[in-house]
Amino acid sequence: MEIDRYRRQILVKEIGQKGQKLLASKHAILIGGGGLGSNSANLLIRMGIESIDIIDYDTIDKTNLHRTAVFSEQDVGKSKALVLQERLQSVNTDVQVKGINKKVTSKNIKSLVQLADVIIDGTDNIPLRLLINETAIKHKIPWVYAGVYETVGMVMAILPKKTACFQCITPNIPDSKTQEIPVLGSLPATIAAIQCNETIKVLLGKQPAGLLIYDVWNQYFDILDVKRNPCCPICGKK
């Protein structure tokens, strides 16, 4: 690891040389390379981790460009995962960046995430998040939920059996109709940055913050401190 490139980050007392070296030993799995995922990958790779797998089976559409990082017009039609790999590898050659052009399913998720120190949520639907949650809790892998809708974003770092899980916070499961989700273009970058902050804290062993809710339009930044639900079918005792 070339340490000097991180000099300004190492000066942050919460990180230091020790934190930077620890980050350089961590493997992240990012599921979804769209608005949230492209921004998260961009930030994490710059901040320095050991390696990241970016998993997405989708191709870049021109309607993605208003809220994504990295992609440009000439990328339309190409694989999100592979374009992110190519561009972001050149940002930081210390980090092993691997694009995986694959759909995450209940059959392959275990083999895709089992070596992760953290899973980063860049997905766009609840069922996939519930699958990530179940797998992460079962295999004791921390993961960081993030989501956006209109002008509202949410982030929650989930430590298996320590914090509330995604199932704990969604006992009243929203309907999973697939529809075009309205999103303010600048919001995924904002929320992805908060998600990366939480990810770094998880990787360095700092207790995460609870469910963060940011509402751009109404200017609210709230934190819901939530406990694990002992009756949760995924992380509870039963």
């Binding site: 509330a164 704990c168 916070i169 969604t170 006992p171 009243n172 499961i173 929203p174 309907d175 819901l224 401190d225 939530v226 406990k227 694990r228 639900n229």
Partner: peptide, 14 residues
């Protein structure tokens, strides 16, 4: 139908 509701700091079903 989808509101997040907590009771005593715990998310709870309706």
């Amino acid at each position: 139908s989808r509101m997040m509701v907590t009771k005593n700091n715990m998310f709870a079903s309706f």
